[in-house]
Write a protein that binds this DNA or RNA. Structure first.
Lengths: 240, 240
DNA sequence: GTGACTGACGTCAAGAGC
DNA sequence: GCTCTTGACGTCAGTCAC
């Protein structure tokens, strides 16, 4: 295993290629839709169109019933998709995510479960999530602690507030997304550069070593041409 | 910007530390829950909205329906939760994730949904997921489409099938997670090594260069001390 | 085909800098 | 306070090997 990866690991002049370009097409989209992403769309929707749509989600969560009203966006949104165009380009639209957490914060909730752990082998734990939480919390057990966060206001105004919060958060996310991309690119460049540097240095090193040896052997002879190229000195002579 | 990052970018002997250990627990979970889950949840939702009509609804429906039947587990599951106990310790059970895609493939999709979770042993299944949310949808608008796709078998068996699929997928995910971690570690080590190598080479290079120079100056003298440090000679004599 | 590895992305949480 | 950046993680898709 390691070996295999090794090669790729030390690619020296490597890759990264077919990335942006040939991205996805149907499947991707599909996938996105399916998995998480589906989300995105929303995002956009929201983003731009925002308002309604956005809310909607929220609402949805909050109260499913309510929602009804919002959506007529439908198709439009879709097409609109790119509207924002920030980068529509081909691919990925973006995704959005959801919100969720919003309200809830760390602690509170208490419960919750899960945790989880991580790595290694096994564990499995399970969890389940429950989510209901959000929507409904009639919830069973957990309700216990919970519920309630957002003590005070909630329904009435909350919609608005929430919306705002969500929007904001989302925006941040987008920014961060871009930032991450930049960062990644940078890092990659850095690594590549390191590789290059190493090879250059190694080479140079070898050369020096050889030269040294040579010099030791026959002291008198000056380096024939260490760096010929360097030598092209003044062509026309600037006249200082 | 770049500058700032630069420093971090070229850390030379750097970090990476608190990694495995202090992992998370609650939050992770939380997050996952939130995000994905939610997402998923929304996913659905949105789909609708967004695309609107598209099938999502269907999914929804389907799912919902299915879910309902399949998993009434709800609470039960919850409690069951730890059953496996791998380690319950305090926390973590693990997360679950959801799923979505499963069956669907390109085309048809079927819907599906939800899933859930679990782990290992047995699962009991359930997971519930989310759904409930959905559950509700008697929804207004959507009822429209309808139900049913998945021509062939569906209800009856599907639960099982789905569950199986999900389980599998989940397992894969875990594995992949671990693998990714390994890969990451490896890569990091690689980078670090590169950095070290570069600095070593640079140093060596300098040394060689100097040596060379020296040698050129006084040909006859053999290398006085290639490695001065080694020599720590007498301190006090410095009387120049 | 199943499993491992990895490139790429997105997300989050800390931290730096303003 | 804010943003931007980055380390770390998880996820997905694709590849290579068994």
């Amino acid at each position: 295993k390691a070996a295999a990866s090794g090669s790729s690991l030390n690619p020296q002049g490597s890759l990264t290629l077919s990335r942006d370009l040939s991205r996805k097409t149907v499947d991707e989209v599909w996938k996105d839709m399916q998995l998480k992403k589906v989300t995105n769309r929303d995002k956009k929707i929201q983003e731009r169109q925002a308002t309604l749509g956005e809310m909607t989600l929220e609402d949805f969560l909050v109260k499913a019933g309510v929602v009804a009203e919002a959506l007529p966006t439908k198709g439009g949104a879709m097409s609109g998709v790119d509207s924002n165009g920030a980068f529509s380009q081909h691919g990925h639209w973006l995704q959005y995510q959801q919100l969720s957490s919003s309200t809830q914060q760390p602690n509170v909730m208490g419960g919750y479960v899960a945790g989880h752990a991580i790595q290694q082998p096994f564990q499995v734990g399970v969890n389940l999530v429950l989510d209901a939480a959000y929507s409904e919390q009639p919830a069973s057990l957990m309700g216990t602690l919970s519920d309630t966060q957002t003590p005070g206001r909630k329904r009435g105004a909350s919609g608005v507030v929430v919306e705002k919060t969500v929007e904001r958060r989302q925006k941040r996310m987008i920014k961060n997304r871009e930032s991450a991309a930049r960062s990644r690119a940078r890092r990659q460049a850095y690594t590549q550069e390191l590789e290059i540097k190493v090879s250059r240095l190694e080479e140079e090193n070898e050369r020096l070593r050889r030269l040294n040896e040579m010099e030791r052997a026959l002291p008198s002879v000056p380096p024939p041409e260490p760096k010929p190229k360097q030598q092209l000195r003044r062509t026309s002579s600037a006249i200082f």
